[in-house]
Simulated scan of single mutants.
Amino acid sequence: MTLSEIEHQYDFTYPALYRQLERDGMLDVGEYGPDWYKLVYPTLTDRPTLLLHADDFELLNIEAVADAVDTLLDADDYRKIDPAFRFIPFAQTGAGDHYCFFVSGQHDGEMPIVLLWHDQNEAQYLAKNLHDFLFHMLLNSMADQDTYNEVSDEEFRDQLAKTLGTHARYLSSEQAQILQTLLSRDIIDYDVLLPKGRKEAHRGLLTDIELASLREGMIPYEKFDSCFAYSTAG
């Protein structure tokens, strides 16, 4: 299976950036299986593939993309997706939600990126195109060190530096410079304020407030974080 075959089969065209990522080997994550993390992952860490170290992001290989599209189009699928909506998954979360190109949401040549929730009737807008999504995800990675899995400060910086090494070419020079500047910062501990006066401890190179400000300034998108129902069933 190739990207061209997927395009032909589902009658759409991938963004030029996605095609470039494929040509550059940035989508080559191998075959997932029980030993992927032990055998394949170590071979990718020096030159990280697309968002290899991003939180809760698992890139789908091309065969998995075709399987995922077929499942979403299946009339018997439990999600009962409205045929008016066309989604092409390219990655998933650990819980099985899909990061998708929202084909039927294309506007002025821009194909939005949405997160298709598997356990609720909602698709969430993340970026107006793949280019902006990439910058958005890299900012998120810099703001959130994986303390749950005890990633050390040194590992955190090393992962980000190597990621920037393979991803900078797909960003604007201004975006790449912003990330490079953030990388030279001291790591900080900060609290994210939650509803009802609660707060959550985080650690990273920028706070959630700084992240939101950079996102709004660099990749403004009026639909960001808004959701729509993808099924009319029930």
Rank of each mutant, 00 (worst) to 15 (best):
M137E: 01
L138F: 00
L138Q: 01
L138H: 05
N140Y: 09
N140D: 12
N140A: 06
S141G: 08
S141N: 09
S141T: 06
S141P: 04
A143I: 00
D146M: 00
T147N: 08
Y148P: 08
S152M: 04
D153L: 11
E154K: 12
E154S: 10
E154Q: 14
E155H: 00
E155F: 02
F156I: 01
R157D: 04
Q159M: 00
Q159Y: 07
L160K: 05
K162E: 04
K162T: 09
G165W: 08
G165D: 01
G165V: 04
G165K: 02
H167Q: 08
A168E: 11
Y170N: 03
L171A: 04
L171C: 01
S172R: 06
S172E: 10
S173C: 12
S173E: 15
E174F: 14
Q175M: 05
A176G: 00
Q177M: 14
Q177E: 15
Q177W: 13
T181N: 15
T181P: 01
L182W: 04
L183D: 04
R185V: 10
R185Y: 09
I187H: 03
I187W: 08
I188Q: 11
I188N: 12
Y190Q: 01
D191W: 10
L194F: 12
P195H: 15
P195R: 13
K196S: 15
K196M: 15
G197R: 06
R198C: 11
R198S: 08
R198N: 12
E200L: 13
E200G: 05
A201D: 14
A201R: 15
A201F: 15
H202P: 00
H202S: 14
R203L: 09
